[in-house]
């Protein structure tokens, strides 16, 4: 039940969020992410969602091998109170290894959310967060429609260029123009 509380909710920092995980208040089985200080439940992952995440993982990993890192359902630090877990992201290789410093917005070349029941949130809240963080490219993979929405050119909290791809279309990531991803492969 979504109960609206009149009054101001307490918001948390990343530090507090990790403290909760350390002492076991947030458990590894809790599927949550920190969005602007709020601890948000992630929607359950359905069969099609899992399959499309696996397809994307497979084809991006193979095509980008050695040039960048494909990171699946891992956290991304956007601010002191915001740390979503995008379904996929492509991270640049950098001199400071990721074991020493988490992925931040400026490490990200592409973020992908696969949306089954989270479509409206991925197209609004997440879209705004990623645009505000200056992430240059963001894809929303719509499981139901079998379409991909490509967002580019972040500007003032949204993306200026948005295109929706269907059917036999394909897309080349901005950061890797030589790599082509067809929708047929994504939704295989």
């Amino acid at each position: 039940m979504a109960v609206e509380v009149a009054g101001t909710r307490r918001r948390f920092t990343r530090e507090e969020y990790y403290q909760m995980a350390e002492v076991g208040i947030l458990k590894p089985t809790d599927r949550v992410e920190l969005i602007q200080g709020e601890i948000v439940e992630m929607s359950p992952i359905g069969r099609r969602h899992k399959a499309f995440v696996d397809n994307l993982t497979q084809l991006l990993t193979m095509r980008i091998a050695g040039r960048a890192i494909v990171s699946v359902q891992n956290p991304l630090v956007l601010a002191e109170d915001t740390e979503p877990d995008p379904d996929l992201k492509i991270l640049r290789r950098r001199s400071v290894p990721y074991k020493e410093l988490e992925a931040h917005a400026d490490d990200v070349l592409l973020v992908i959310e696969v949306a089954e029941s989270s479509l409206s949130c991925d197209r609004s809240t997440k879209q705004r967060l990623y645009a505000e963080a200056g992430i240059s490219e963001y894809w929303v993979v719509d499981c139901a429609a079998e379409s991909v929405e490509v967002h580019r050119t972040p500007q003032a909290g949204s993306y200026r260029d948005v295109s929706r791809l269907n059917g036999v279309a394909s897309v080349n990531p901005l950061a890797f123009p030589d790599i082509r991803v067809t929708l047929a492969e994504v939704f295989a």
């Binding site: 949550v32 709020e38 948000v40 439940e41 929607s43 949130c121 809240t125």
Partner: peptide, 17 residues
């Protein structure tokens, strides 16, 4: 914006916090 589903807290968790 569509409402996010917020993590809800149990009293026992709150007391731990």
């Amino acid at each position: 914006q569509p409402p996010l589903t917020l993590r809800r807290w149990k009293r026992a968790e709150y007391e731990q916090l």
